[in-house]
């Protein structure tokens, strides 16, 4: 069974085209640095019409990034009918969680959140299944979430956020983050190559709890405080793994 191509009749609307033109300028400049002219032209056509003349010439994943529609329906179509491969699915799954893609790719915050929700349930699940059969073999893909990698990246993201960076996507899906903390394994496990990074970033943002008034950047201070207070309460009242509680306890001890 194939997924029907989404209705793209809106791409004929002159107002939509005019608005799209304003987004295309910076994207084109970015693409022209590292892609042949022919590829840039194909991507322009994809960006404005959704048509991909020659999928072989379009680098993996570009279809997702430049398709005119950014909805679950569109991504189903692209993963199944444009035959994006399972590796690509996994890369986008991680990128959607961390927001680690160029901000030019999503035209608004709603689309960014839809992309997160396309891959991730409301609360943490250890295995993520594709919604549609994908790849040349047209199979449902099951990706085991790398918990150490996610914890490292989320700790880094919150550390940056508390240091004044933009509010990350994961901030708007805190139920996912906190349910993940409840399921997280022993971060000190010898097989965890990221344990030093996890300790560093976690320690970095936990320290800020004690300096909420003085250390937080004025930008997004309300969101920063809300996150830290919820984190404190969660660690105190939920079955978070002892190895994570230990990081928190160390920070507490330093402030006694």
């Amino acid at each position: 069974m194939t997924v029907k191509q989404p209705d793209l009749s809106f791409t004929q609307n002159p107002q939509w085209i005019a608005e799209r033109e304003t987004h295309w300028g910076p994207i084109e400049g970015f693409l022209k640095e590292n892609n042949r002219k022919e590829v840039v032209e194909q991507l322009k056509k994809l960006f404005f019409t959704g048509v991909i003349d020659n999928p072989e010439d379009v680098r993996e994943g570009f279809a997702i990034l430049y398709y005119p529609l950014q909805t679950a329906e569109a991504w189903d179509y692209l993963f199944q009918d444009v035959r994006l491969n399972p590796k690509c699915f996994k890369e986008f799954m991680n990128a959607s969680l961390m927001g680690s893609y160029n901000e030019k790719f999503f035209l608004d915050d709603e689309a960014r959140l839809r992309f997160f929700d396309y891959f991730h349930p409301a609360t943490y699940q250890p295995v993520i299944k594709s919604r549609v059969p994908i790849g040349r073999e047209q199979k449902i893909v099951q990706i085991e979430v790398d918990r150490f990698e996610i914890l490292r990246d989320m700790a880094a993201k919150f550390s940056q956020f508390l240091g004044g960076s933009e509010v990350p996507v994961i901030y708007y899906r805190l139920d996912y983050f906190f349910s993940f903390l409840d399921e997280a394994c022993d971060v000190m496990d010898v097989s965890n190559n990221d344990k030093d990074d996890i300790q560093y970033f976690a320690n970095n943002f936990l320290q800020r709890y004690f300096k909420i008034e003085s250390d937080l950047e004025p930008k997004n201070r309300g969101e920063q405080k809300a996150f830290l207070v919820r984190f404190y309460n969660h660690i105190a009242n939920n079955p978070v793994h002892p190895s994570i509680k230990a990081i928190w306890q160390k920070v507490l001890d330093e402030h006694d």
């Binding site: 693409l31 022209k32 640095e33 590292n34 042949r36 002219k37 840039v40």
Partner: peptide, 10 residues
């Protein structure tokens, strides 16, 4: 400045 693709072609 890293402009090796279509920029250089043009």
């Amino acid at each position: 400045e890293g402009q090796l693709g279509a920029y250089l072609e043009e």
